[in-house]
Design a binder for these strands. Structure first.
Lengths: 190, 190
DNA sequence: GGATACATGTAATGAGTTACATGATTCC
DNA sequence: GGAATCATGTAACTCATTACATGTATCC
């Protein structure tokens, strides 16, 4: 249902739009929230029209179709938000990779998380910019709350990666230090 | 591939295990990282055995099968971690609902995010407890990095919800204040 | 003997990705 | 006239959920 709700929300926020425009939104503004390809969007819009949640106003310039939310569509969105229990299923590849880190050596693992840090630091900045550009204009608040959440989540991942990298690097250092050295015969052990 | 890698990782961490045990791990320790049902786990293990990533030692007490990672399996896990670009696709229902919030009134929206805050505050605490229980024992570090990330992400969501609720509540208050009052004709406007 | 947990599967359906396919308009 | 962008679809496949189906060991 989430894709359907995302589409209803987008149409509520932007007014009428066609599938192409909605698909683009999943590629830019909505990319840190939800994603979908056009091959998923077009059939879903057709099903939604059949269910009476949107109306299709056929045939603009090229074979395009302009969709708008119906009253039933708005109602359905409100119902979903307030009455349907959010899906709490987690399927987080970053976290999965974090879980698997110990199967790598400390050095390789540290390198990996350093890259994660860089990526999410950049993403946080990009979303922050988007959020700030969202201040006054068109739609009342749409995107602002999501952008704020995006910034906080990306920052949290980057901070975690920084912490993990530090830990792994010191671990790698310890191992190196603890290794026997040919030129010296240390008397203390780890 | 993620499910496959999660299974390889679990088997690396725990040593040999059967599908039932692995499925349970997705329900508790791994639930904030990745999830899967037994109907997905059993066929995947069979495919992995066929691909030579794990070996199945048939027939324990009840028709059970004990799986272990092969050398090829370990190699495949390392290869995936270091050479395969992580999937950055975001499909986050919390963020989606955040995006859709403005389609609700401020009061209803505030109530919703207060519930989110409560939920994620509790989740953060639960994972923190798991993390702390993970200190010394069995597997070297498995789970510790993921748990730390889980705590940070859950806390970030709870903090965001707290912030959003505050904002929405003051918005709701402003609206109420700005409304004309019968007993008084206010001279100042919002 | 009955409930609960252990243990493994398959089938139908839905959600999502990648690839195939087509055509119109606009900009240069 | 050719490239880029607009615009919409379908087909094959993979991944995930829900429901159906079956049987064993253990605890009380």
């Amino acid at each position: 249902m989430s894709l359907r709700m995302a589409l209803l929300g987008l149409l509520t926020a932007k007014g009428a739009a066609n599938g192409y425009e909605l698909t683009k939104a999943f590629g830019d503004t909505l990319s840190h929230v939800w994603s979908a390809q056009h091959s998923q969007v077009y059939p879903e819009l057709a099903r939604m029209a059949e269910a009476g949640l949107v109306t299709a106003e056929d045939e603009g310039p090229r074979g395009r179709k302009r969709y708008s939310v119906t009253e039933a569509g708005g109602e359905e969105l409100r119902r979903w938000l307030t009455e349907v229990e959010p899906s709490r299923t987690v399927r987080n590849e970053v976290a999965l990779r974090a879980f698997l880190l110990p199967s790598l050596g400390a050095t390789a693992a540290a390198q990996l998380v350093r890259e994660e840090e860089k990526f999410y630091r950049q993403r946080a900045e990009a979303i922050a910019q988007l959020r700030d550009s969202l201040q006054a204009p068109d739609t009342p608040g749409f995107g602002a709350y999501a952008a704020e959440l995006g910034v906080r989540l990306s920052t949290a991942i980057a901070d975690w990666a920084e912490w993990a990298a530090g830990r792994l690097e010191s671990e790698a250092g310890d191992v190196r230090e603890a290794e026997p050295d040919d030129r010296e015969h240390g008397t203390h052990e780890a």
